[in-house]
């Protein structure tokens, strides 16, 4: 069928998806995270990564960093929908500013002996990962960096006895002297 059969199925646009990192400054009140997550699930938006923590205790401010994907039109909608929520102060598209730094922290547990163990340690050193726990048959590495770097590190650890990974999700901040 060339023509969509219903207004509900018309979104036949094949605009390519983009990945954007959004920084959302919110009033730290009960349920605010549920509101943000509910918006994403209710409207069918994607969450690739979500990080939240109180950033200014005295002003009751929390900062939520969300990595999301969608067509440019959907990304624009997401920002507007977030911005109109009552406890939301500001929404900044860190990807659009092109002047932001993104970091993620991961803890990576690797189990192995002999050559694998030595190789894991060597790679960790190359990636500037720190050993934060060690037994005779395992390490826990702490690694910080952007998402790609961490993915790469985890891929390398896989054949060397990767046991589990715990990641914080992405935090982002703008370069230069100005705040958001």
């Amino acid at each position: 069928m060339n023509q969509p059969a219903s207004a509900y199925f018309i979104e036949d646009r094949h605009d390519p998806n983009e990945t954007h990192t959004l920084a959302v400054l919110v009033q730290n009140e009960p349920g605010v995270l549920a509101r943000v997550i509910g918006l994403f699930s209710g409207r069918g938006y994607n969450i690739e990564s979500l990080t939240v923590s109180e950033t200014e205790a005295q002003k009751h401010l929390s900062r939520i960093t969300i990595v999301t994907t969608g067509t440019p039109m959907v990304i624009e909608q997401i920002k507007h929908q977030l911005d109109r929520m009552i406890p939301v102060y500001r929404v900044v598209d860190m990807t659009l500013t092109k002047r932001s730094i993104e970091r993620e922290l991961a803890m990576v547990k690797v189990r192995g002996q002999g050559e694998h163990r030595v190789e894991a340690l060597r790679l960790a050193d190359a990636f500037r990962a720190r050993v934060i726990d060690a037994t005779t048959e395992s390490f826990v590495f702490e690694i910080t960096g952007n998402t790609d770097k961490i993915n790469q590190f985890i891929d390398l650890m896989r054949p060397l006895g990767l046991v589990e990974v715990s990641r914080t999700g992405v935090a982002a901040i703008g370069r230069g002297p100005e705040g958001m």
């Binding site: 969509p4 207004a7 018309i10 039109m73 624009e76 909608q77 507007h80 929908q81 911005d83 109109r84």
Partner: peptide, 23 residues
């Protein structure tokens, strides 16, 4: 109706108090 055939030849001005209604 069908959005891709909606008023195809017009320039559209949209006044709304809710920015999320735009586009």
């Amino acid at each position: 109706g069908r959005v891709d055939a909606f008023s195809p030849g017009s320039k559209k001005i949209h006044i709304d108090i809710d920015p999320s209604s735009i586009n």
